[in-house]
């Protein structure tokens, strides 16, 4: 089994674990994207049963797919296995998402069967006016940190193009470049486009509101969490920019593979930090007061669609990070743009 296959299998295990753990990546009063006023719903016997069913089904599916993946690695060539891996990953996401939607429907039924909660309202919202943007939104000055490395990368691409080798490395493993493409503007500009995309994402998510509203205690400490997440995202972008800068520089002069390995490992550390931040500042917080019952705005508990909300990005209801408001045309442009850039860069 070669090194790349091992990395991809590790990626599969990581994604599968995150998919299985989904119900735990939400506030305690949110169950499969359905909001309740009281966090005690987490300990409810029926809720625990829905959660357990999801856990058993998704873990079973992911394990079966894992066995298929391992089996394929013995009977297929590396190139065919890569295609098989993409199919298995797709199956993992589709099946686990289907199981999530099933659990979401069961939770909605459970909510309907319960006595109406006076703390759950569709008509009222209380917001804190006492906090200015300086306290709740990370300053734009932090985003400026991303500019110098971006300009440096662009400058190296622009002025260094004539000096670049005819074959450009397009994929890097732990031991350095392992895939190459003929030199072209499309190939050398790819890292620049990725930097631009990451920077734009930081700008869009700076003001993303909480996924649970109603009163300032519906998402306590959210503003602090969002600031830290944005800062983390900026540091992640900065390190990615440095990585891309090294990639571009490696088109001209060889760079020690150790740098790529170090930066890739640091980026993996960000995932762990994100999970820690979520548990510390979201999951462990005690929710209280009236809660806005906006389940109707969350399709299957996953997709946010709210015409009256001006936000392009909002906090995910389930999972760590942010998602788009599908009712905003600009969100579709951003989404399609990201998909297009990803497809174009992977070709």
């Amino acid at each position: 089994m070669n090194e790349n296959i091992l990395i991809l299998i590790c990626t599969y295990v990581l994604v599968a674990c995150l998919m299985i753990m989904q119900p735990w990546f939400s506030r305690k009063n949110v169950l499969f994207g359905v909001v309740f006023a009281n966090p005690s719903i987490w300990r409810d016997a029926q809720a625990a049963s829905i959660r357990r069913r999801y856990l058993v089904r998704s873990a079973g599916t992911d394990l079966a797919l894992f066995v298929i993946l391992l089996f394929l690695s013995f009977i297929l060539t590396d190139e065919k296995w890569l295609f098989g891996f993409s199919m298995v990953m797709l199956a993992l996401i589709v099946i686990d998402s289907f199981l999530f939607v099933l659990a979401n429907r069961q939770t909605r039924k459970l909510k309907q069967s319960m006595a109406p909660d006076a703390q759950l309202t569709t008509k009222k919202i209380v917001v804190d006016l006492g906090k200015s943007d300086r306290e709740t939104v990370l300053s734009l000055k932090w985003v400026l940190l991303l500019v110098p490395v971006f300009v440096a990368t662009l400058a190296v691409v622009w002025f260094g193009y004539p000096y670049m080798a005819d074959s450009i490395p397009t994929h890097f493993g732990i031991s350095g470049p392992d895939r190459w493409a003929p030199k072209s503007w499309h190939t050398v500009l790819s890292p620049v486009a990725l930097e631009l995309m990451l920077g734009a994402l930081v700008l869009f998510t700076r003001r993303a509101p909480a996924s649970v509203k109603g009163n300032p205690n519906a998402a306590p400490g959210y503003a602090q969490y969002r600031k830290m997440m944005t800062l983390l995202l900026i540091i992640f972008c900065l390190l990615s920019e440095i990585l891309f800068f090294l990639v571009v520089l490696s088109f001209i002069t060889p760079i020690s593979p150790l740098w790529f390995a170090i930066l890739s490992l640091v980026n993996l550390g960000f995932l762990i930090t994100m999970i820690w931040l979520y548990i510390r500042f979201v999951r462990s917080k005690h929710v209280s007061g009236p809660i806005l019952d906006d389940d109707g705005k969350w399709i299957w508990g996953i997709f946010y669609f709210n015409r009256s909300d001006p936000s392009i990005f909002v906090e995910k209801r389930v999972g760590i990070g942010f998602t788009v408001n599908m009712a905003r045309p600009i969100a579709w442009i951003v989404l399609v743009g990201i998909i297009l850039i990803t497809i174009l860069l992977s070709r």
Binding site: I125, V127, L129, G130, K131, S132, D133, R134, T136, V137, R207, A208, P209, K213, D294, N306, S308, D309, P310, S311
Partner: peptide, 23 residues
Amino acid sequence: GNLNDGDPLPSVRTLGAEIGVNL
């Protein structure tokens, strides 16, 4: 007296997002 001279208010964008209404 909960709001006094010089107290900052959230920006239009932030308040709109918090309430969930058009800017």
